[in-house]
Structure formats: C-alpha cells, structure tokens
Amino acid sequence: MIRKATNLDLQMIQNHAAIVQQEATLGYMSGNPALINFDMMNHYKGEYYVIGDHQSIHGWILLGETPLPYEHEIVGMVLELYVLPQWRKHGYGKILMQYAIDFYKRKGFKRVQLNVFSGNPAKNLYDSLGFQDVSTLMERRI
C-alpha cells in the first residue's frame, strides 16, 4: 500500500506542488513550489513515499533527516504530508504518519520532527499521534 515514489509519481507530486504549498502554508510561502520541494529533498536527504492502489495515488509523505541545532543528534524529519482531497477522511494521513514513525524507529532514530503552520488542520493529526510543540515562530506585519 505504501511504496517509494517512482519517477512517474514524482511528476504527479510536482504537478500538485503549488496546491500543496498553498494548503500547507496557508498562503505564507511563495515562489516556485516545485523547486522548493526538490530543494528540500536534496537538503534533507529526503525521499517521497506514496500510498494508494494499483490505479491511483491517494497521498504521499516526504521523509528526510536533519541535525538538531541545539544537540548533537540527527532526527527524522517529516517534510511534507499530503492526501488528495478526494481521499481525505479515510485515514491515509494517519497511515502515512505511522509509516514515518516506524521508518525512523527502524533506522534507530530517537525523535521525529515536523513543521506545521498555525491554523493548519493537519496539526490535529500530529497532536493525536503524540507530537508536541517544541518552539513557536511568531510574526508581526509592519
């Protein structure tokens, strides 16, 4: 059900990049989302994994790793999670996130981190899986 993304999958993911970026960042990020995605893949040694059946992809997750800036430890990083609108409310986001947690456990990591914008409904999923706020980025427009 979950597999590493093929080149064909990556093209489909890239075609959805602008929509994903808009939804995930609630409109905060601009630029070329396709370049941002693939820059993240390279910077974080990321790999996409997709969920679906033989006919279609229902969603995907981008997994990477990063050193913690305040400790000498490499942690797993969920860089992107997306479920196509027609497949939402079927548990695919939770399945992908559980896959990520298990993936990092098998690699011997002790922590998994992710970044989520305030107001993103996916935060409820992350909370339900035991993720906790570590820091808060605040902003004021001037």
Rank of each mutant, 00 (worst) to 15 (best):
L10I: 12
Q11G: 03
M12E: 06
I13K: 05
I13L: 12
N15I: 01
H16L: 15
A17C: 04
A18Q: 15
A18L: 14
A18N: 09
I19S: 11
I19Y: 12
V20Q: 04
V20H: 13
A24P: 05
T25G: 02
L26V: 12
S30Y: 03
N32F: 01
N32K: 10
P33Q: 06
A34D: 11
I36C: 01
F38G: 00
D39Y: 04
D39Q: 14
D39F: 00
D39N: 12
M40I: 08
M41K: 11
N42W: 05
N42P: 00
H43R: 12
H43L: 09
Y44H: 09
K45D: 07
G46N: 06
E47R: 08
Y49I: 00
V50P: 04
V50Q: 05
G52N: 08
G52V: 07
G52W: 01
Q55F: 00
S56Q: 05
S56M: 05
S56A: 09
I57F: 00
H58C: 11
G59Y: 01
G59K: 12
I61D: 04
L62I: 04
L63D: 06
G64E: 08
E65W: 00
E65A: 09
E65S: 11
T66S: 14
P67M: 15
L68R: 13
P69F: 15
P69W: 14
E73G: 05
I74F: 04
I74R: 13
G76F: 03
M77P: 02
L79F: 01
L79D: 09
L79N: 13
L81R: 04
Y82F: 13
Y82R: 01
